[in-house]
Design a protein around this nucleic acid. Structure first.
Lengths: 113, 113
DNA sequence: ATAGTGACTTGCAAAATGCAAGTGATATCT
DNA sequence: AGATATCACTTGCATTTTGCAAGTCACTAT
């Protein structure tokens, strides 16, 4: 089998965006990280308005990327617990910087500073 | 006219992703910031493979968001010079953190540390 | 005057997204 | 035990976005 290049370009930023560069992935990571979400339904009802098929797809892609794990719950065999891996937790600084930027420049209820 | 909410959710991360949450926008900012790109054609030929219609759309959206400015060149009336605003420059930390994360976890030519 | 060049726009096929409804495997209630 | 509810999805379909090739238009160079 021919082995294609692993990434579209040699830049780590580009490599990051291949998996995280969309409207939802980083919001899912944020909810796992700061809001403590574990369940499918929590994301679904989080108010951001993600469709269930998209949510399922993103959770799967994040798993494949090694950012998230999914385990069946001990006490309820229907339920799945999603968690961040180390790799996922390592997104904290990037998420924080996006938060800071958004706070300063985008999300201004009151007049911007 | 009815005034809708300014943002889809009250979270600054979400607000940031409304304009930056796609495959290309942050790469354009990166190229303006670290590679010093100024011209349409430079982005087009940068090797990432962005289509010209998408590039035009992203540059327009980044302008509308106040992240980028576009000015006709002094010496060549055909040419447009794109530049980052302060707001755009303020994305440096977020970009850097994505770079760090990508370097550590995604872009590993050699075995990962 | 003619031939480029830079920055787009247009047309169209393919892929991704959004929405509503449905499915299947548990779990809970009566 | 049987009916009902819950959780985590999947499916079908319309809409939107993306990607690719080609074309346009203003301006510049020869």
């Amino acid at each position: 089998m021919a082995k294609g290049p692993k990434h579209r370009s040699g830049c780590p930023v580009s490599a990051s965006l291949e998996v995280l560069g969309d409207r939802w992935s980083l919001l899912i990571v944020r909810d796992l990280m700061v809001r403590g979400f574990r369940r499918f339904k929590e994301f679904q009802q989080s108010g951001e308005g993600i469709a269930t098929n998209i949510l399922a797809g993103r959770l799967r892609r994040l798993q494949q990327a090694g950012i998230v794990t999914a385990e069946v719950d001990d006490e309820d065999a229907r339920a799945v617990n999603y968690r961040l891996t180390e790799k996922g937790i390592d997104l904290a600084p990037a998420l924080l910087e996006l938060l800071i930027w958004g706070s300063r420049h985008e999300y201004c209820e009151a007049p911007c500073n």
